[in-house]
Design a protein around this nucleic acid. Sequence first.
DNA 1: TGACAGGCTTGATTTAGGTCATTGTTAAAA
DNA 2: TTTTAACAATGACCTAAATCAAGCCTGTCA
Lengths: 255, 255
Amino acid sequence: MSVSALTAGNSPSHPKRIVIAGMDGCQACSVCEVRAHGICSALNDEELSQLAQAAVRVTIPPGRQFIEEGSFADEFFNITSGTVKLFKSLPDGRRQITGFVSIGHFLGLAVSDRYAFGAEAIDQVRLCRFSRERLETVIDEFPRLERRLRNEAANELVAAQDQMLLLGGKTARERVASFLYGQITDLYGDDIPQNAKLHFPMTRADIADFLGLTVETVSRTISGLRREGLIATGAGHEITVPSPSRLQIIASGEE
Amino acid sequence: MSVSALTAGNSPSHPKRIVIAGMDGCQACSVCEVRAHGICSALNDEELSQLAQAAVRVTIPPGRQFIEEGSFADEFFNITSGTVKLFKSLPDGRRQITGFVSIGHFLGLAVSDRYAFGAEAIDQVRLCRFSRERLETVIDEFPRLERRLRNEAANELVAAQDQMLLLGGKTARERVASFLYGQITDLYGDDIPQNAKLHFPMTRADIADFLGLTVETVSRTISGLRREGLIATGAGHEITVPSPSRLQIIASGEE
DNA sequence: TGACAGGCTTGATTTAGGTCATTGTTAAAA
DNA sequence: TTTTAACAATGACCTAAATCAAGCCTGTCA
């Protein structure tokens, strides 16, 4: 299947269409627009062509759950665009979003043969899909890839520990400030400007499930921060933060 | 330094004494009582002797913090006995215990050159210490070790996600039941008996900081479970669980 | 054009768990 | 043996956030 055929599914006018297609050997990966991100950045051209053999590009429409918690984990994913929410649920429906992940993120690190979490596209998501079996073969050949995966896991672990600190002890105000500040660092890296502009895709309900709060509390808290002049809200999901450092201080519980 | 010299520090009559000693080449690791656990199990005799060159055995007295959050991460650890609490803190002293770890656990997976968490011995702890530099060298030579570390990280990540679900949504009762059930599975594995007996080393304050509750709530909740006949408390930190499956149902929020 | 639905905000009220205070228990030090 | 201190349990009270209940946008479908 050709590369051009792949792009059809990306058209905004066909949001429901899912394209599943093989890649053109080494071509597809080596010209990949996100090659610098994610696990692929650990490989050179030759190695990448091997990886490409195992990869399939997929487009997922907004709202579609593409990993079911507890289902058989026969596939791994690497996100190339869009935002995905990862979550765990209790039998009665309570849901904890354990993370929002986007470009470059690798999904499916678990040792078990079952996924430990569910995954759902928030906006339109594109990703590379690998069969578990074939990826494991490629990993065996390239220790650098293995190292990369370990680092990925270690970084996620650090994020998870931060989130435990948030969920275990922070106030609603601190949680919302932490979330917003996290969005800023995700977007700007270490070079955070004054008047940082954010436009994230997740709803209040998503934020609530991520922060261990209710929608009402998230809404009230955001309104509170706005009244204090700490943030300004725009249309859609746009928020401007005049002084990110001020927000960080609140996020870390220092006031 | 001889192996026999090492044992001096383990005497209960000298709890404050810390022993830092080199290992006898391949001897020390190959006869290690916990070789089947932890990262060492990924290596054969020859590889292990290489690892041993980089290892130092250490004994830590109860209550001693041996990793400071944010300090320079120049050492890795592998626990050979005892229980360690890992935690993160907010500037005002609020503390979240992110995990209790014991025999076989590898400490220091972070990518950063700073520790992302603090670590403190709960009871007397023995561990193998590696310089970061030397361990990285050994890892480079043995891909199997790299794989082992990735799996270790992946498993921790799953545990962290479970804990996020707990902290984000569970009631006090469900949290305490989850903790107790977790202690049971840690101790018995998959083969859980009726009338499981537990005696864990952590205080109510530790449990509270782990579960995102206060000591009072932990105490009240344990008393509540006892009144209901779901657990029986003994002297010290002993608890008997007549029906672990009953506890599991509560832990997972199904009643 | 209206009406329906999904998402957001805000207000009134409730409650689970936190805070503060007291007492009991155990064990090590003196 | 008393003294001290750390840990644990329990009661009385308080509060942050949940719950319950409207109302308000905005986009889309008929």
